[in-house]
Amino acid sequence: MVANEETIRTDEIIICRDVHKWYGNFHVLRGISTTIKRGEVVVVFGPSGSGKSTFIRTINRLEEHQRGEIIVDGIELTNDTRNIDAIRRDVGIVFQSFNLFPHLKVMSNITLAPIKVRKLPAKQAETLAMELLERVGIPEQAEKYPAELSGGQQQRVAIARALAMQPKIMLFDEPTSALDPEMIKEVLDVMREMATSGMTMIVITHEMGFAREVADRMMMFDEGIIMEEGTPDQIFGNPQHERTKLFLSQII
């Protein structure tokens, strides 16, 4: 299961060593090496096509890396379905386009995975779902269909759905990019609350205000590598690379 027991420290929850990925001939990830500690909030940013989305999708095997190692909570990510399933149980993801199941009510959206995968009894799953809906602020929407909700509400349901599996890590792939400005705040509030309560988060976003407040570390991706990383103060105050300066100047 685990590659090298001695080099794993228990607070390193995600370890990536020299991860490469190709789409056909296109080399999208060119040797990503990084570690993420338990409880850390990492904000990933960078120009489009730089591989940020691909990177976080490799962590829960929505994309497959062709070279290098990825170890999540001590389990190595290989072609072994046992490992993949175990990792997916512990990693939640929130997508840019919400991807809620339109034919199920909000309550069923949230309880489907706990019931089928974690084998939770239905009553328990529903109680859990209601707690999560309260936590994200929309308990009254439980019996509605996703199409009846606003974008911000849908994204919050998506967050609740991911949280229902009680993951150790939450991935966010540009969660607010598809939202109207009024709704961005309500989603960021939920994410902020999650960060302060100690969840390990990797967030792809261009909401720099949010990053400055909440991130422990920021990573800039460019052309498949991590161009620069550091604390928000370091990145905003003293960016080292030209590309970072250029990118920041365009979005602030």
Binding site: L62, R88, G92, I93, S97, N99, F101, A113, V117
Partner: peptide
């Protein structure tokens, strides 16, 4: 179908046949 649906389901841990 939008492929995102199946992705979300797999990311939640649902096996392929489910």
């Amino acid at each position: 179908l939008h492929p995102g649906q199946a992705e979300a389901a797999r990311a939640l841990g649902l096996p392929g046949w489910q």
